[in-house]
Design a protein around this nucleic acid. Structure first.
Lengths: 302, 302
DNA sequence: CCAGACCAGTCAAGAAACACGATGGGATAT
DNA sequence: ATATCCCATCGTGTTTCTTGACTGGTCTGG
C-alpha cells in the first residue's frame, strides 16, 4: 500500500527520503552522518539516498561546505512529509514528559519547550491494555479504583466501551455493575485491572454517550466589544455564535472546563469568557438521557 | 543509532519486528498480510520476519487457524517496544484530530475514542516553522497577531526564545519590541510570520522565564476528609503537600487553570480542589522578576 | 604552510535482503 | 468435492546494501 510516490521505492528508502524532508522542514539542516546513524546504513548508501532526494526535489537543499551540512534552500517545498504543527508539538510534549525517547523520533536538537501541568504521573501501559482488550472483546473486568468520593470499597466491576480525553485527563466510559448505570472512570485512578470475562450489558443503551446535543456558545456579554470580537475570531464563530455538537455525557466536562456551571457575576468575566446559551436544555437532556438509559437497561435485563 | 539489540539487524527488519510487538501488545493480533502491506514487502518476506520474531520471543504469539491471525499468547512479554500508555493515547488523539493519518501509524482498528474540546483549529505548520527558525537563529520577526485585548495594530515584532504548552494551548515566549518586555503569544492567534532578522535582545534577561519558584499546594480544606485524601493520592502528595517547581511566568497559567486566582468561598470547593498556600509569595515574585527584567534590559541597551 | 581531522562524492565487488514463481498443508465457505 | 484464503518453505534471480579503495574541499593546530 502507501508508496504511491515513485514507482517501486522500498519502504526503508521511502522513510529515509522522508527523514531528509522532515529535517529540512523543521531543522533546516542535516548531515550525511545523521542519515547514516539514525538508520544504521553506510555513508555510501546515505550519499546515494541524498542524491536520490536531490533528483526528486532539486530546489530543496544546498550543501554548505563551511557548516558541513545540507541546508534548506530558499525555494524549499515539502515533498514527502505531511507537515502538521500539532503533530510536531505533540511529539515534543511526548519527549519532554518521557513518554517517548528522542531516539524514537527524528528530532535532532529539540527546541526549548515546556509543558505546564501539575500531573506528571505515568499510567501503567498494562492497565490501559486491559481496558482496551475489554472494549474490543465487549467484556467486563474488575478494577481497583481510587474514587474521588473516597468510597471505602475500591474494587468494582466495570464493562468499558470507550475512551475519551477531557480537560487534560483520560477517562473510560463504562457500565458499572455496582451502581447499575454508565459512568466515567479516570484512567489514572485505576490501580489494578483483573481478568476479562464476557459481559451481559449492551453499550448502545448508554444514551448519555450515544446521544449528542448542540451547545450554543457566545462570548460573555460582560466583556468589552474588542474582547468579544477577539473570542469570535479565536473560536471561529459565525454571527457571534459557536455551535458545538457533543455527546451528552461529555457536556459535563466542557461545562466544568469553561465554568459554564458557575452562576454569572460570581467570577470575573475573564475567567468565564464564554457563556452557554442553552444551559438548561443541556442539563435537562443529560438528566433525561440518564434516566431513560437506566430504565432501558432495567427492561433489557428482565 | 539504536540497534544494540541483536547483532546486526537492519533498520527495516528491526522496524518490522517492532511492528509485530506493537500489534501484539495493543491489538493482541495481527496478520501476515498486515505486515506485508504496511511495509510493502512480499508475503514470503513477511513469513520470514514472523519466523524471526518467533525465534526471538517464542512464548509471545500463537497462530489461530480459525481466525487466520496470530494472537497474543498468555505468556506474552513486550520485547522490542517501549510501551507507553501516554504515547499511545497521544497518537489516538492525533489521529482523531486529523493531525496524523492512520497510515502513518501502526494502528489497525483504533478503539472508540473522543477528544472533548472546543478548539479544533489547525495551526499552519509554516508559521510554527518561522517561529522555530527564529528561536534557533536568535532572531526576530514580524507577526500578525489577533490580540485578545483587541489592539488595533495587529502587526508586532517579536524575538521568540521558547515554546510552551499550557491549559491546552501553545504559546511562544518572546521579547516584544513594541512593549519593551517579554510576553507570551498564543501560537494559534498568529496569522502571519515575516522574515527573520538578527535580534539584539539577550533572552537570559527574561527573568520571569529563567527563574523558578516552588508552588506549595494542598487539598482545599473545605472538602471532606475522604475527598482530600483522594486528592493527596492522585497528585502524589506527601504530608498533605504538593511542591511543584515552575518558571515564574508559567505560574500564571497554573493559577488560572486551577482557580488559585479566585478568592476562597466564591466557588464551590469542587471547582477549587487545590489551594495555593504561598500565593502572595508567588504573585510578588512574578511582579518583582518582571520589573527587574525590564530594568536589566534597559541597562543592557544603554 | 602543511599535516591531520572531518566532511563529502564515486567506482567496483561481494554479501545480504528481498521479490517472484512454484509447491504443499490446513481451515472455511459454496 | 472444489474453491478460496490463510499460512510455510524451497529455489532463483534481482535489487539494495556493505566493504574497501580513492579523490576532493574546508577548517584547525603545530
Amino acid at each position: 500500500m502507501a508508496e504511491e510516490t515513485g514507482e517501486t521505492v522500498r519502504w526503508g528508502v521511502q522513510r529515509r527520503l522522508e527523514f531528509i524532508d522532515f529535517r529540512l522542514f523543521w531543522d533546516g539542516r542535516f548531515n550525511r552522518r545523521d542519515l547514516a546513524e539514525t538508520f544504521g546504513i553506510s555513508a555510501q548508501q546515505a550519499s546515494s539516498d541524498i542524491a536520490q532526494y536531490t533528483a526528486l526535489a532539486p530546489g530543496n537543499l544546498a550543501y554548505d561546505q563551511t557548516l558541513k551540512a545540507y541546508l534548506r534552500a530558499p525555494t524549499y517545498e515539502p515533498k514527502l512529509m505531511h507537515a502538521s504543527a500539532e503533530r510536531y508539538l505533540l511529539q515534543l510534549v511526548a519527549i519532554e514528559n518521557r513518554w517517548m525517547r528522542q531516539e524514537d523520533t527524528w528530532f535532532d536538537n529539540t527546541p526549548p519547550i515546556e509543558n505546564v501541568s501539575l500531573l506528571r504521573k505515568r499510567t501503567d501501559a498494562r492497565i490501559l491494555l486491559h481496558i482496551l482488550d475489554a472494549i474490543n472483546q465487549r467484556g467486563q473486568l474488575e478494577i481497583q479504583y481510587r474514587s474521588i468520593t473516597g468510597s471505602p470499597e475500591p474494587r468494582r466491576v466495570i464493562a468499558p466501551h470507550a475512551l475519551f480525553h477531557a480537560v487534560g485527563r483520560w477517562y473510560v466510559r463504562a457500565w458499572s455493575n455496582e451502581h447499575s448505570d454508565f459512568r466515567d472512570y479516570n484512567l489514572f485512578r485505576i490501580g489494578q485491572a483483573g481478568d476479562i470475562v464476557t459481559a451481559a450489558i449492551d453499550s448502545t443503551l448508554d444514551f448519555e454517550w450515544m446521544h449528542k446535543i448542540d451547545l450554543i456558545l457566545a462570548p460573555n456579554p460582560a466583556l468589552s466589544a474588542n474582547q468579544q470580537a477577539a473570542l469570535e475570531a479565536e473560536y471561529g464563530m459565525t454571527d457571534g455564535r459557536l455551535v458545538v455538537t457533543q455527546r451528552l455525557s461529555q457536556t459535563f466536562y466542557l461545562m466544568t472546563e469553561h465554568n459554564f456551571d458557575v452562576e454569572p457575576d460570581t467570577l470575573p468575566p475573564g475567567k468565564q469568557q464564554l457563556v452557554l446559551l442553552n444551559r438548561d436544555e443541556v442539563v435537562n437532556a443529560r438528566a433525561t438521557a440518564r434516566k431513560l438509559s437506566i430504565d432501558a437497561v432495567e427492561r433489557a435485563s428482565r
